[in-house]
Design a protein around this nucleic acid. Sequence first.
DNA 1: AGACGTACCTGACCGC
DNA 2: TGCGGTCAGGTACGTC
Length: 272
Amino acid sequence: MPELPEIETIRLSLAPNIIGKKIASISQFRDNLRYSIPKELGSICVNQTILSVTRRAKYLILSLENNYNIIIHLGMSGRFTLNKNLAIKKHDHLIFSLEGENQLVLNDPRRFGFVDIIAKNHIDHHKYFARLGIEPLTEKFDTAYLMPRLAQKKVAIKNLIMDSSIVVGVGNIYASESLYLAKIHPLKSAGSLTEYEVGKLVTAIKSVLNRAIIAGGSTLKDFVSGNGESGYFQNQFNVYSKAGEMCPACLSAIERIVQAGRSTFFCSTCQE
DNA sequence: AGACGTACCTGACCGC
DNA sequence: TGCGGTCAGGTACGTC
């Protein structure tokens, strides 16, 4: 499900409703998602107030007053929503009951997501965070940053922009959409891009991600914000999931190929 | 090192 | 109606 814009959408929708709220209790319905859920989750979180909700890459981070962070990754199919004491649904794995009647519910059918607890001052050294590249929506992500990291690389540019050790948050949807916008062929080797092309790519990534956040993310099947609302950026896709349909610019048929086991969509006329 | 493939898991969809 | 195959937004790890 979620790439950077979807996680950011969840963060924006949850923040005003959970910051300052105390976690009254935790209900846990299984021991593990992709990885084990820490046994000390309850003892660390209960009776703690949530001070902030931030995002790093595709991780949601709930900071507690005791200097611990709850780390949540939604994998491919996770939802993290604020509900009012509804009945427990299939694939609800973890419920944070807040003071009052609201509950934060983690629901994840495929269980590719995971949850961890990290002491605040250790987060950058944690194994999930230590090797992460920079955030694409910061000023530091620019041609000067990216150019030397592409140099000499034979890997296809599509795979490279999905490499979280270089730049985080660009998943399979937004990789295809960004390359289309930059008019760069997804199979092109990263090291062969000119400085001009790298500049266009940087601009395209920022533009696609920002527009997706404004649209509340992309709902392909089941994405919803923290308030349960669908996104609508999927209506603005130019190429993703549109094999055989017409390129909006040149009317050629959009093609689908497979790279590193993932579908890539592009226009071979516009993206040379 | 880098380029792959595989594993993790459920559900939706398609053709037969 | 059911069965088998394919595909799906992500990440870590193993192997050449």
